[in-house]
């Protein structure tokens, strides 16, 4: 009979092997239908666009060049591509603003839920969860109904005699802001709530005991305690906002494109797959930087929030 030590070693080896076998199907599916194709995008970004879409297998850096530059059709000189730059800029700006707005509205909402009695808390949380799981498209469509020229806001304002002509809100950056804040708000509230729920309110009592007023308690006690939630929520909103496709397509129209729509354009009418690939990788790179920032700050917080 083998010794106990050998048996234990063998059991451990078998355990690790079994664990690889068990996780293999998930890893393979994700590799084939998510991770692997990303690598192909990298390759495509260095090829030449085909005349009817797709690519010609010829090496070229034009895809990457045209992310920021524009080649003049007549004299072949390079200049900054204002159109692309402004879309990058708009995407970053709108995503940032969305993050700020969702934080502004989400923080009090999460705090409100977290300070309810336990039973009520579940009901409020449930009310936040429902829009979260409601189809993004339906929510975008819903906000469109509200801000359209014939929508509720304009109708009510006209009926009240405040305005005589409907205010044009659709297809503006304002519409995009409202829409994205609306659809991403639950993404901010949920992680904020998760860290607020853990607040030990004796610390708040201690704050008041030591002569802090309400605002000072908020700023010096509560906000530092829920910082991990603030960071997590901001990342959860910023990343999908940056790559948003549906909301700008429905509410922004063709003039108010964001990065997602610019990418789609290259695979549709633009017929420039290498440029589209290069733009995709650029977007992914920005997201990775944001995630890295998150991982680092989460690590500094002592990993209190996943």
């Amino acid at each position: 009979m083998a010794s106990a030590e050998e048996v234990a070693k063998e059991a451990e080896r078998r355990d690790i092997r079994d664990r690889w076998l068990l996780s293999a199907p998930a890893l393979i599916i994700i590799f084939l239908a998510a991770t692997g194709p990303l690598l192909i995008v990298v390759i495509y970004s260095f090829l030449t666009p085909g005349p009817y879409g797709d690519v010609v297998w010829k090496f070229s850096t034009d895809g990457w060049l045209s992310v920021l530059m524009q080649r003049d059709i007549f004299d072949d000189t390079l200049a900054f591509a204002d159109a692309h730059l402004s879309i990058f800029w708009r995407s970053a700006k709108l995503s940032f603003m969305t993050t700020i707005f969702t934080l502004f509205f989400g923080f009090p909402t999460a705090y409100f839920i977290a300070t309810r009695p336990a039973r009520q808390r579940e009901i409020w949380l449930f009310l936040i969860t429902i829009p979260f799981w409601t189809n993004l498209l339906i929510r975008t469509f819903a906000i469109q109904e509200v801000i359209r020229n014939e929508g509720i806001v304009n109708t009510v304002l006209i009926k009240l005699g405040i305005i005589s002509q409907p205010i044009q809100m659709m297809f503006t950056d304002f519409a995009l802001m409202v829409g994205m804040t609306y659809v991403y708000l639950p993404l901010m509230v949920l992680p904020l709530y998760a860290s607020m729920e853990k607040i030990d309110f004796r610390l708040v009592e201690a704050g008041y005991d030591l002569y802090a007023n309400r605002f000072q308690v908020l700023r010096r006690v509560i906000i530092p305690l829920v910082k991990p939630g603030i960071i997590a929520g901001s990342i959860l909103v910023f990343i999908p906002a940056l790559g948003a496709y549906v909301t700008p397509r429905v509410l922004g129209g063709s003039k108010n494109m964001m990065l997602g729509n610019l990418i789609e354009l290259q695979f549709g009418q633009g017929r420039n797959w290498p440029l589209g690939s290069a733009l995709s990788i650029s977007l992914m790179a920005i997201v990775m930087v944001a995630l890295l920032f998150y991982v680092r700050s989460a690590g500094r917080q002592g990993g209190t929030h996943g």
């Binding site: 009979m1 083998a2 010794s3 106990a4 030590e5 050998e6 048996v7 234990a8 059991a11």
Partner: peptide, 20 residues
């Protein structure tokens, strides 16, 4: 639940240390 790194554990004279 664990296996010894060395030595024997006898149950009525029979080594059970390697058994699950």
């Amino acid at each position: 639940f664990d296996f010894p790194s060395a030595g024997e554990i006898l149950l009525h004279g029979q080594d059970i240390a390697p058994l699950p």
